[in-house]
């Protein structure tokens, strides 16, 4: 983050290209993360419920706590790094906009809530499965929008 923040590199073509490349990589990561969660958890209510709570009719066992917690552990780590990079670049480019502060807050809050709510849905409140799906979709959409805004500013200024 220190390298992204420093003003000494404000007009560096290398830094602009590097920032574009890393944001593009994060954009691809966000897209593939949706696909990964579609496979592991499911992205419609029937498959989410079958994964978390099992499906007796089809002899599907609920996911083990170890497996779900490992996914949550990895999600927190990956989200943290993706959001740190994305928000650093975004703040650098859009620091004068009034909305920037709130967009950064929302990115981190939704990114944090998604794994926590998924775990809560599994452990205590099955009704939260729907909430997880909504939060998961919102934070991925928000991250895509922020990535596109960054790329637009970097590549078409």
């Amino acid at each position: 983050m220190k390298f992204l923040v420093t003003k000494d590199l404000a007009h560096s073509t290398l830094l602009t290209t590097l920032m574009s490349a890393v944001v593009f990589a994060i954009l691809l990561y966000i897209a593939l993360d949706v696909v990964l969660h579609a496979y592991v958890i499911g992205l419609d209510m029937d498959s989410i419920k079958a994964t978390l709570f099992g499906d007796e009719a089809n002899f599907v066992e609920p996911i083990l706590l170890d497996s779900l917690l490992l996914q949550v552990h990895i999600d927190l780590f990956m989200t943290l790094f993706a959001m740190l990079i994305l928000s650093s670049v975004y703040i650098r480019l859009y620091s004068k906009k009034a909305l920037t502060k709130w967009i950064v807050h929302l990115l981190f809050i939704f990114g944090l809530l998604a794994p926590v709510v998924l775990l809560l849905a599994y452990l205590a409140a099955p009704s939260l499965a729907m909430v997880w799906l909504i939060i998961f979709v919102i934070w991925h959409l928000l991250a895509v929008v922020v990535s596109i805004m960054i790329l637009k500013k970097l590549l078409f200024k």
Binding site: M1, V5, L65, D66, L69, L70, V72, H73, L76, F77, T79, L80, M83, L84, S87, S88, I91, S95, T100, K101, V104, H105, F108, I109, L112, P115, V116
Partner: peptide
Amino acid sequence: NLALYKIPIGYMLIYVVLILASGLWLFLLS
């Protein structure tokens, strides 16, 4: 003078605490 950058740094602290907690939990489960 990096007011806006305090936001991601602040959230990072919470994320790291949760990563440590889930790691401990995973170890105990194993």
